[in-house]
Design a binder for these strands. Sequence first.
DNA 1: GTGTTTATCGTCAGGCAGACGACTATGATC
DNA 2: GATCATAGTCGTCTGCCTGACGATAAACAC
Lengths: 254, 254
Amino acid sequence: MPPYDPSTFPPFAVTVDLVVLTVRRHALCALVVRRGETPFQGRWALPGGFVRADEDLGAAAARELVEETGLCAHDPATPAVGNGAHLEQLATYGDPARDPRMRVVSVAHLALAPDLPAPRAGGDANSARWAPVEDLLRPEGGYGRDGESQAPLAFDHARILADGVERARSKIEYSSLATAFCPPTFTVGELRRVYEAVWGVVLDPRNFHRKVTGTPGFLVPAGGTTTRQGGRPAQLFRSGSATVLNPPMLRPEV
Amino acid sequence: MPPYDPSTFPPFAVTVDLVVLTVRRHALCALVVRRGETPFQGRWALPGGFVRADEDLGAAAARELVEETGLCAHDPATPAVGNGAHLEQLATYGDPARDPRMRVVSVAHLALAPDLPAPRAGGDANSARWAPVEDLLRPEGGYGRDGESQAPLAFDHARILADGVERARSKIEYSSLATAFCPPTFTVGELRRVYEAVWGVVLDPRNFHRKVTGTPGFLVPAGGTTTRQGGRPAQLFRSGSATVLNPPMLRPEV
DNA sequence: GTGTTTATCGTCAGGCAGACGACTATGATC
DNA sequence: GATCATAGTCGTCTGCCTGACGATAAACAC
């Protein structure tokens, strides 16, 4: 290890960027905000901001999450109260050219949230929105289903988003994290639609039901039923204490 | 997102720390270096150093890896040549109090290497060594099997090492990464001993043989046999093109 | 040769997943 | 109110994979 003088280290800016995912209308969506300044002015970007001088990385991510969505990060300590979201570190991006202004290292975090009413960003409805990741990750431009223009995300945020989506897709295989996309109580069918939206596949309702109800600790009956999805009333469940699924949920091939 | 003045961001030092793992004498070992300066002078620490002003994070990690071990990072581009090691980003640690001198954010990387002759760190054999992770992660002090004193690792490096070991343990379940611990050609038994050392378990040789030889693309016959492990000559294999194992290797319970 | 060590092939039973049939309980429609 | 569409829930069957072995093969040490 070469010796160094602590006072001459190269200075970096450190930010956190958030990949906030939710499932809306059968589609996996991410929270994006419109940039008001150069570079990439007017383009969509992931929410984020500078880490403060005396702030831990996770705390900075949780603070940004509250500022952008009102969601409380779901600490292991906190029980699963109303607006809790799962938050975990994703990866760190530090290409010297990723921000033309200066050297910025961004510690990306992944948040999984239930379907929320609407993004709030200082009340400016035009500056933040949920967008289907399918649209955001389309290689080039084009238009989303709502006619919203789809220039690629600012900076290297498409890459970060892709990494976050891939993390979410693989993590719901072997963990109970899919319930983070659901409201406090939910049905087996609602949970299945989460898997279908995140993976982009169609699952057999009977085998899915057998699997999730047969995995100890995954779901606990919350009592009562609901018909909010139509059809026969479905039992309501709450997320159980299990965090890892063994054996895992199997994602269908191709 | 609050507005900001790019010139007033809080300055951070950014470092990379390396968790370099190998399997030696049936034990999972990590590379540690002895600190020559305060804080934690004389204590063992993970190798690492500052990211240079115009250097990507992965490049900094690869540079440190070469400096400490002579290993070349195994880029996807590079074919599996002699001294190639697997290198991937692990996680980032930024507790404001993790370094008493200043605010340091460390991007930890995980490297998996075959058994190497001996660490080199400027030729000073006393300043770098392979230590069994079991010893390094023992909660408090004590002595390793070789009588080497075992004060806990410097900074938060025990935590980083534990995260790296856990990553390696889980990743060899569903990927072909275990071959990164093996020389270019190896036998099924040698690969099994890697799994046994990393997981700390004993595996059935017959079922293991059936599993790894039956997974398409995991192993390709390299031709020839060896008796370097004693007993009946064993076929030599090379790592195949498969990167993910589906279905995965199952780690025995408990 | 005999014993030891390691490698490799086989067999068998249990568990789990995919494919699918059958039935149930709602709301919507006529 | 009968019928239909929709969704939920319970079973069955078959094939694959794994864990727990037995058995054989090919080297080395004495």
